[in-house]
Amino acid sequence: MVGASATAALAAVPSAAGAAPVSIDKPVLTKVSLTVNGQRRDLELDTRTSLLDAAREHLHLTGSKKGCDHGQCGACTMIVEGRRINSCLTLAVMHQGAEITTIEGIGQPENLHPMQAAFIKHDGYQCGYCTPGQICSGVAVLAEIKAGIPSHVTADLNATLQVTEAEIRERMSGNICRCGAYSNIVEAMTEVAGRPV
């Protein structure tokens, strides 16, 4: 079974849903305007372009990282319309007119956001590849707690939320750091949240 079916499967056989024969599709180009880090950017993109690749490959905003391209690591986290999302799992064309903040819009080397400065102070990174995603998430997580959005570890769904280490750990769990800087990241975020570290 394996050999024969593997051959067939690699041959881009139509999936269960569709019955179209093998076809060589032309890219479909679409115009899209995004407001990225406060700047309007007009692009003409293949509809298949993810928001992540629009930023990295078309706008050369490479701060957002591609760790898995499947929503499994969080390295691509951006803040879109005020909310953090995995930019690898959304199409750029779905964000016509949207306000997008990438790590480049959070702060710059000579003008660091307090979260970036706290990551440096607490060594909340090692190789640096997950770091922009961690920081975008970190900024958004503190806002989510402030906005009263509960989490898996919130003991009482109807009580006022606190910034606790457990809340930070749970909410940051969509951002994988294989270097294992978690303990330091929590300290950086705790400091930014204004609680004693």
Partner: peptide, 12 residues
């Protein structure tokens, strides 16, 4: 603090 920290934390 790491001297490359400001680059890593800003995605640069």
């Amino acid at each position: 603090d790491r001297i490359d920290g400001k680059y890593k934390t800003t995605g640069t």
